[in-house]
């Protein structure tokens, strides 16, 4: 696990266009050309929590916003605003178990390919080294207005 996150809390707003109550990334550990690591503390007031558990859409949105943050990181380093990113396709989203409130999601993203504004990523979500979910996702980044 990287020692010091690059961005945490509201500083993540520089990378993603989502705002409360639907911000599903609160830690941005690292990013290079092909990989990134993100995180999320699960609080009971998360809109996707029910019965002390983060439900399936919360887990999927966490991965989608992690990918959006990854896509937003390069523009951020150039001093540009984040662009709107949309999920185009979710594939093979396999969930071993849903995380509980109080747990911390640590997510690894890997870019499998990129073409024409579409990025294909593979993601693995862990809690303390235990894999909770894996998936592939196509993210569209909206250029300009």
């Amino acid at each position: 696990m990287p020692n010091q996150p690059l961005l945490t809390g509201e500083a993540i707003y520089r990378l993603i266009p989502q705002r409360p109550p639907i911000v599903m990334v609160d830690t941005f550990f690292s990013a290079d050309e092909t990989d990134a690591e993100t995180g999320l503390h699960i609080h009971a007031d998360n809109i996707f929590c029910q019965a002390d558990t983060l439900q399936e859409p919360g887990l999927i949105e966490h991965v989608a916003q992690s990918a959006a943050a990854f896509a937003g990181y390069a523009p951020y380093t150039r001093g540009e605003a984040p662009k709107l990113g949309f999920i185009g396709e979710v594939k093979k989203f396999k969930i071993v178990r849903l995380p509980h409130c109080g747990e911390f999601l640590h997510t690894h993203l890997h870019v499998m390919g990129e073409a024409g504004g579409v990025t294909l990523i593979a993601a693995e979500v862990q809690v303390e080294g235990e894999t909770l979910a894996t998936c592939q996702m196509k993210i569209f980044i909206q250029e300009g207005e």
């Binding site: 266009p17 989502q18 919360g58 999927i60 989608a64 709107l84 949309f86």
Partner: peptide, 15 residues
Amino acid sequence: VYQGHFPGKPVSPGV
């Protein structure tokens, strides 16, 4: 949910 997805530009979250 539309307060944050996205501010001033409501889009129904896919999830």
